[in-house]
Amino acid sequence: MKVLIVEDNKELASGISDYLNGEKYICELAYDFEAAREKLLLFTYDCILLDIMLPDGNGLELLKVIRKENISSGVLIISAKDALDDKVNGLEGGADDYVTKPFHLPELHARLRAIYRRKKLEGSSNLITFNEIVLNTDTVEATVNNTLLDVTRKEFDLLLYFVVNKNRVLSKQSIAAHLWGDYTDSLANFDFVYQHVKNLRKKISAAQGIDYIETVYGLGYKFNTSKT
């Protein structure tokens, strides 16, 4: 996947690109409006990460350019403003999704994947397969070795999050934010994360699946693909 990261903060841009490079994506960086516009007109990208506040212009203006030039890339807006107007304007302006700073990199990645699936693969790939695990994002069904897992919506989301961010350390905070949103007010979420992960592992093991999910001491969990 080829991604254009439009973000004026160089450290953040490089952080995102480091993470996405780990997924074997090709990332290009644009630190301002003009550079982004130029790149958009010259090259094609599968996805664009777009910061709204740029030193020389508004990211929403860039959305207009994207629409005018019929660029078919998926657009994920990153903004520090979680003002509602911005969200609505962004989505009405042709963006596919919206994350607010400070986001978790796995979350960003998961959303990027979702956009990619929807937009580039045109929904043909509503099945996400990893070895014996198959996830159907349309029907919200998970199967392991062709056995249907009896998972809740939250557990399905959790498994999907793990599969998309495989071999990554997923912090408890990031999982909590993914499952319950940003406004959960840190409701001692981490016990709940533990509960959900435990249940999920139990259910996968019960279906004779490999227990890929391992605990990373002090941090969270990891979907370790090298487990057999």
């Binding site: 903060n9 952080g15 993470y19 520090a80 403003k81 700073k101 400070p102 978790h104 990199l105 941090l219």
Partner: peptide
């Protein structure tokens, strides 16, 4: 909002990247 959220995003993403590297238990706890 903008000025605080961006550095926060930087710290958070860098920590996430850091946790991917070869670290021992004490560092992970930190």
């Amino acid at each position: 909002s903008h000025e605080l959220q961006t550095p926060l995003a930087v710290i958070r993403s860098k920590l996430e990247l850091l946790s991917e590297t070869n670290i021992d238990g004490t560092q992970a706890a930190l």
